[in-house]
């Protein structure tokens, strides 16, 4: 398994990278962690003529809380996320997810930005970011624009990032109050893509009323899906088992999974139903803890 020939550059600045992308247009691909791109090139499902390796560009890898946001640089490796103290203590949803993304070696290379920018509904971070209502910074020679995650995923492998642009940072509003989050996916074996995955961020007030809820679903829809109707059931209500059941039911109805070796449509809907219940409960437990 060997890729077709291509040309390659590893610019040291974003400006150089933008210029290369503008020059090569559709023929160029950005190389970050490379663990989605290189396998596709080895199988010759993808044969880009030019690779722009952004790994030498400084300033794209960081995890910090600043101005009310958790900021994650696009080049941040999954391992760095997993080992970050701030993530471990306040955002276990990421450690839940990263443990289940591929395997340790792949996580040493794979980046958070790449996981999102690939636009694959089977990847795990899209659902997490949907639950967290992330904002995504997309930069080009024209400057930087910020796109809410809800407007980021367009279609099958299509995102808001245009060929001349680079995803540079993901910002997550720091949740306040009694808040908890969690992620889980069913997989056929460790490291597999999700049969179905669910990300939940929930905040409740002292009376147990839900003041924030985000639910994202992995690999049960052509594009990463936010379970809007499920969120609406819970928002502003005192969270009960009955309401959680209803939210789970809506999520299973609103997704649109396709049949593959992991299961048929009905099975996946059924698993979404189970998982949404479980992950809301887990997020709630964490909120109470």
């Amino acid at each position: 398994m060997i890729p077709a020939p291509f040309d390659y550059a590893a610019p040291a600045t974003l400006a150089e990278a933008f210029s290369l992308l503008e020059q090569h247009g559709d023929e160029a691909k950005i190389l970050a962690g490379g663990h989605s791109l290189i396998p596709m090139m080895k199988l010759r499902f993808a044969s880009p003529e030019f690779l722009v390796d952004i790994n030498n560009i400084p300033g794209l890898s960081h995890i910090k809380e600043e101005n009310g946001y958790l900021k994650i640089g696009a080049l941040t490796r999954e391992t760095e996320l997993d080992e970050s103290e701030v993530i471990r203590s306040k955002y276990p949803i990421f450690t839940d997810a990263s443990k289940l993304i591929a395997d340790p070696q792949v996580r040493n290379m794979g980046t958070v930005g790449g996981n999102i920018a690939h636009g694959d509904a089977a990847n795990d971070h899209p659902a997490v970011m949907l639950a967290l209502r992330a904002e995504v910074d997309i930069s080009s020679s024209e400057g930087t624009r910020s796109v809410p995650i809800d407007e980021f995923f367009y279609g099958f492998y299509m995102t808001a990032v245009q060929p001349h642009e680079i995803l540079t940072e993901i910002r997550i509003p720091i949740p306040n109050g009694k808040t908890g989050n969690a992620y889980h996916k069913l997989e056929r074996k460790v490291g597999d893509y999700a049969t179905a995955g669910v990300a939940v961020q929930i905040t409740i007030d002292d009376a147990g009323v839900c003041t924030y809820i985000g639910i994202g679903l992995t690999n049960v829809n052509p594009v990463p899906l936010r379970a809007v109707r499920s969120e609406e059931v819970l928002l502003g209500q005192k969270v009960t088992d009955e309401l959680i059941k209803e939210a789970a039911k809506y999520a299973s109805e609103d997704c649109n999974p396709s049949e593959d070796l992991r299961g048929d449509e009905a099975y996946k809907r059924s698993m979404v139903n189970v998982l949404v219940k479980r992950i809301i409960h887990k997020a709630l437990e964490r909120a109470h803890a």
Partner: peptide
């Protein structure tokens, strides 16, 4: 990726 040889976890 789809022929599921067990890992140390399974």
């Amino acid at each position: 990726m789809d022929y599921l040889v067990p890992t140390a976890v399974e």
